[in-house]
Design a protein around this nucleic acid. Sequence first.
DNA 1: TTTTATTGATTGAACATTCAATAAAAAAAT
DNA 2: ATTTTTTTATTGAATGTTCAATCAATAAAA
Lengths: 210, 210
Amino acid sequence: MPKVGMEPIRRQQLIKATVAAIDEVGLADATVMRIARHAGVSAGIISHYFGGKDGLLEATMRQILHDLGAAVSARRKALSTTSPRAHLEAIIDGNFDRSQVTGPVAKTWLAFWASSMHQPQLQRLQNVNDRRLYANLCHQFRFLMPREQARDAARALAAMIDGLWLRGALTSEGLDSDRARRLAREYLDQLLQAQDARTPHPSHEPQPES
Amino acid sequence: MPKVGMEPIRRQQLIKATVAAIDEVGLADATVMRIARHAGVSAGIISHYFGGKDGLLEATMRQILHDLGAAVSARRKALSTTSPRAHLEAIIDGNFDRSQVTGPVAKTWLAFWASSMHQPQLQRLQNVNDRRLYANLCHQFRFLMPREQARDAARALAAMIDGLWLRGALTSEGLDSDRARRLAREYLDQLLQAQDARTPHPSHEPQPES
DNA sequence: TTTTATTGATTGAACATTCAATAAAAAAAT
DNA sequence: ATTTTTTTATTGAATGTTCAATCAATAAAA
């Protein structure tokens, strides 16, 4: 079987198998043997490509975070406007992107979330990601409201997004991504309406094109 | 040392020690030895009082859920009104009650949350609790809006509460419970204002006393 | 023939649980 | 009031299991 250039293939295989194993039995029971079996390879190969189980878990979390970032980024790049509202909606949609919201991925996500509280390696990844979401939201809200209000709006919308995710991961039916998206968007509407009510004379929004 | 009637004392001790151990090193590394050391007793005693580690973990989750329920319940009973808004605020405040929001408890809570996805015993407890929060919220919102809107409002506020919890558990500084409460209350305000805007002629609210 | 990829039995460490031994308190007997 | 007996609580070493990591052996491609 050994061909040259197996490394990228095996790495992807094993990361996918890790998500599958965590979905199946949870992080605590996702042993190297079970993961290897999912990938159709032997257990030893994990240490060979990832230096050990920890390396594989970190790579898996990286992959998930990367996919999430990519989903958001793609939606924002597809926009032909600088309208803050459109960008905020794109961030919401990206966070509930199909690829992210699959049952297995959601469970893996939550498992890493809990784990990251005590594993510095994972905590770093978690923090980077948290801050990115918060900073992105905050930056957009800044076009629409004063600094402190923008910060609160970002904090609240981030909490809403994560909360919908969390509750989706727990229900047996999995996350209803259409409903989650709708609820998050309605919340955004309310945030913006509340702001309009406070400042009936808009101050410094960027060019809200046609 | 052996006095009669140690059972309730030891059980409480061990549950407290479990929370402390999970706070210290996470659920994955909370071994019976470490928990026992926190409680100042030997490892064997855990099997004696809880039948095994699983029994202790389940009892710990029960305790945390019970404390949360009690905090909400106490605040609602202290109300001398049936105003839906006051009850909704009491539910919010109860969920961010001091006793719940301590760093150790928040971490333990999240650890069980992740764990409950794959442990039927814990999942049952989780579901009961989820449904209670949702049903309570939904019941109060029903006084203020039609069924479907009440359901969405309950889903969204529940997600906001859980999201604030989740994000609070992850930050190293712990949850800022005052800020969390404020953000959740502001969201509630927005929900109710949005509803007032839709139905300028209120239909069937209960006696909104003085 | 050499290089690269992969296997899987082996090793050692960590762990939950068990249980015979122990110790303290409570109860009974003196 | 002592001493003895019984009951209750607790210990911690021993047991058996599970697991991650290792590495010599193997097999396929180059």
